[in-house]
Design a protein around this nucleic acid. Structure first.
Lengths: 125, 125
DNA sequence: ATTGTTGTATTACTTATTTAATACAATATA
DNA sequence: TATATTGTATTAAATAAGTAATACAACAAT
């Protein structure tokens, strides 16, 4: 696994992003047990506490579940994953509109501008 | 002027946002001279260095121009303002697509989701 | 030339964030 | 029951970020 961590941003944030992507992408399936904090930390070359912090974030998101002394699993309800996916997207969209509004564009204009980037480029990206 | 600063985020960031909005909105016209760092700082109730930092950001964006010992003006080319506006929007849009892709949505899907938020709500916001 | 006003640089202080070391607690498992 | 493995809590150290105090430099205005 490529733990491609850069020094620009907090490690635990990067870990959250990486793990989140893997879970959403299905690399770790719903219900599947995850390696232990220590193992994962060793593999990624980070302090166990840092990995723990990342896991805590993912758990708070509802993507993974903790079984006290028996490790963690990906949330076993497939629905929760896609629900989380939508939720994250929602936040993302709201932030987009908020920022665009600050710059001076209303939602419709923001959409139009974003749309122009798709029509002009490769349509399936 | 309402310098509505909250304690949640860095002051200089908030100053940048406020000033940026005012410039883009035309409250400060292209070419118009701005109050001095010290005056602005006093008015906003912040340290001059903090205001200076905000100005430095705006200058780096190209929105304002410095005349060493003679104060600052809004960039006097009206085009540069709207160009900057578009540039900021561009960055915003790219970030949006990037984040949505991380979550698992391609551009088209991202657009569709964002669009749903407009059609469903008030169309002119 | 002198003075006042401008932006700027330097430095230090404070605060928040991030990371790490270590010890603890619970339980599966042998 | 003993042990190893799990997640967790506590604490401290290190680092980074933000703010402020102060001194400096350049030039316009008088």
């Amino acid at each position: 696994m490529a733990w491609n961590l850069d020094g620009d941003r907090p490690i635990y944030i990067q870990l959250v992003e990486i793990l989140q992507s893997k879970i959403i992408a299905g690399e770790y399936k719903p219900g599947e047990r995850l390696p232990s904090v220590r193992d994962f930390a060793a593999e990624a070359g980070v302090n166990p506490n840092t990995m723990q912090r990342a896991f805590a974030n993912l758990e708070q998101m509802g993507l993974i579940v903790t079984m006290r002394t028996n490790g963690r699993t990906v949330a076993d309800n497939p629905g929760i994953i896609s629900r989380k996916e939508k939720e994250l997207a929602d936040v993302c969209i709201e932030q987009f509109f908020t920022k665009m509004k600050e710059i001076g564009y209303e939602k419709k204009e923001a959409l139009a501008l974003a749309g122009a980037k798709v029509d002009g480029g490769d349509e399936n990206e």
